[in-house]
């Protein structure tokens, strides 16, 4: 009996498979095999930022119309190159962007105006007397950015602040629009080296009163920066011009409220002994006194002091300094 049932079912299965197989062959839609390859390289979030109905529609458009440009803001640069190879035409990437959060005020750092008990949605919380946090510019920490992110790339940490997963963030900008406090910014993927984690426009006195880590406009960073990359304006947090910043980290060290953070880890300098002629220029230009030695003798770099700002590398007439791998 069991055997009969198995044979029957198996038979039905076989017949159906045959019918389906034949149908698949006769009614097959001819598709460019490259379309699948392109689609696999697109981010696949169907966010619609390109203006097409989704990633599949955009992949189709790329193949159909040779004038279609790479308008996906979320795609990684390497994938653009691969798509260019597949399509055999040059596509220019929009430039990978990444979100960065400009607030460091955790629940402990910032005073509260009142206790919020409503829905866990920053935009809704903002409606009740402008949010419960005393700072009108700081992160509310209820996770609207996390909810809207189609790439699962931003998460609220234990300190109720959002953290961006650099691997996953594609710079699509959804969190930037959703954040009611406008504390998330987009920056080119590899450009920012230091970030000021505050956008407050309150007076320094007010900031000091409500937040222990808000920018108080003391200008220490502006004065110490050897590249004129930091500017502090009246009643506004310090700002870093990313194109000028080398990431030397001097401002990070001097900031009294710890609001500036180093985003990248810099490689330290090292002197090639056979090239160095002991001219002492490096020790003159170094902002932290890292090169040591005597005139006319090869210098060495004090690793504990060097921050990897790279000033000496540019100034060395003998090209004797390079970054340690």
């Amino acid at each position: 009996m069991t055997l009969l049932a198995a044979a029957l079912l198996g038979g039905i299965g076989l017949v159906c498979a045959l019918v389906l197989g034949v149908a698949a062959m006769t009614f097959a839609v001819e598709m460019d095999p490259r379309e699948k390859l392109v689609l696999d390289l697109l981010p696949g979030a169907n966010c619609g930022a390109c203006g097409y109905a989704g990633c599949a529609a955009f992949a189709h458009a790329l193949l159909e119309n040779p004038e279609t440009e790479m308008v996906c803001p979320a795609i990684h640069e390497n994938d653009v190159k691969k798509i260019s190879e597949i399509l055999e035409r040059k596509l220019a990437s929009l430039g990978g962007m990444i979100a960065s959060v400009c607030c460091k005020g955790t629940v402990k750092d910032v005073a509260d105006n009142y206790i919020y008990e409503g829905p866990l949605e920053c935009r809704a919380a903002q409606l009740i007397a402008g949010g419960s946090k005393a700072c009108a510019y700081g992160c509310l920490g209820l996770g609207t950015c996390e909810q809207v992110c189609p790439f699962d790339a931003i998460h609220i940490g234990e300190d109720h602040l959002p953290y961006v997963d650099k691997e996953k963030c594609t710079g699509c900008g959804k969190c930037v629009i959703a954040c009611p406090r406008h504390i998330i910014r987009l920056a080119p993927f590899d450009l920012p080296k230091c970030e000021v984690r505050c956008i407050s426009k309150d007076s320094p006195k007010e900031v000091k009163k409500i937040c222990s880590t808000g920018c108080i406009g003391c200008m220490a960073c502006e004065q110490v920066c050897p590249f004129n990359a930091v500017t502090v304006m009246k009643n506004s947090a310090a700002r870093i011009t990313h194109t000028k910043c080398t990431g030397c980290g001097l401002c990070v060290k001097v900031c009294p409220v710890d609001v500036i953070e180093s985003v990248i880890e810099l490689k330290k300098a090292s002197i090639l002994k056979d090239k160095c002629n002991g001219c002492s220029i490096c020790s003159q230009v170094c902002p932290v006194d890292a090169p040591k030695g005597e005139l006319k003798n090869p210098y060495t770099i004090d690793e504990a002091k060097c921050m990897g700002c790279g000033i000496c590398i540019d100034k060395c007439p003998k090209k004797a300094i390079e970054k340690r791998l």
Partner: peptide, 13 residues
């Protein structure tokens, strides 16, 4: 449920 709050949230959006 804070229904009015939800509605105000939608209106703001």
């Amino acid at each position: 449920r804070p229904i009015k709050h939800f509605i105000r949230h939608l209106k703001t959006l």
